[in-house]
C-alpha cells in the first residue's frame, strides 16, 4: 500500500452515519473507491432506524473530505489495533488482561489480512491510553500505522 496512514500515535477510525436506506452503504464505498482509498476493516452497528459504519481506511483525511462533500456525517475516533495470536484462547487472553485491569471494551471488530498466524482486531476503549499501556505491558502487540502497510 503506498498511501501513508494518518499521523499521530494512536490509530484512528472513521465512522459514518448510515441511514437505513437502499444503496447507502454502496454509495459510501463508491465514494471511497473513486478516491482510490483502500478499506482495511469495516463494521456496521445497526438499529431499526440507522446504522453506524466504522472503517479503517488508507487515508482518513481524504476519506473525510470526500464523504463530507457528499453530505455524509463523519467522525474520527482513536482506536487500538491489536494483533492477536490466531489460536484457541487468543482473544480470550487479551480480554482477560482487560478484565483484570478493569478496562471497558466498547466494541470490537476484525480485520481481514493475509497473515496466517495472527488475527487483527480493532478495539474501542473509553480510556484508550490506559488500555494501550496495559496491553503493551502484558506483551500484546499493538499495531502502528507503519505496520498496516504490510497488511
Amino acid at each position: 500500500m503506498k498511501e501513508i496512514l494518518n499521523k499521530g500515535d494512536n490509530m484512528k477510525q472513521i465512522s459514518v452515519f448510515l441511514e437505513n436506506k437502499e444503496g447507502k452503504l454502496r454509495s459510501i464505498l463508491k465514494i471511497l473507491g473513486d478516491a482510490n482509498i483502500n478499506l482495511l476493516a469495516l463494521s456496521i452497528a445497526d438499529t431499526s432506524k440507522y446504522g453506524i459504519l466504522r472503517l479503517i481506511v488508507s487515508d482518513n483525511n481524504l476519506a473525510i473530505e470526500k464523504l463530507n462533500e457528499a453530505n455524509f456525517t463523519v467522525r474520527e475516533d482513536e482506536v487500538a489495533i491489536l494483533e492477536i495470536p490466531d489460536k484457541p484462547n487468543g482473544l480470550n487472553s487479551i480480554l482477560e488482561i482487560l478484565e483484570e485491569g478493569n478496562i471497558n471494551l466498547e466494541y470490537i471488530y476484525a480485520f481481514s489480512t493475509n497473515k496466517l498466524d495472527e488475527a487483527t482486531t480493532v478495539m474501542k476503549f473509553e480510556d484508550l491510553d490506559n488500555a494501550i499501556s496495559l496491553l503493551e505491558e502484558k506483551g500484546a502487540k499493538i499495531l502502528k500505522e507503519e505496520d498496516l502497510k504490510d497488511i
Partner: peptide, 14 residues
C-alpha cells in the same frame, strides 16, 4: 439531522 455533534461511533452514545 445528524450533525457531527449528534453523531457518535458508539450506539450507547447515540
Amino acid at each position: 439531522e445528524a450533525t457531527p455533534d449528534l453523531f457518535f461511533d458508539e450506539m450507547k452514545k447515540m
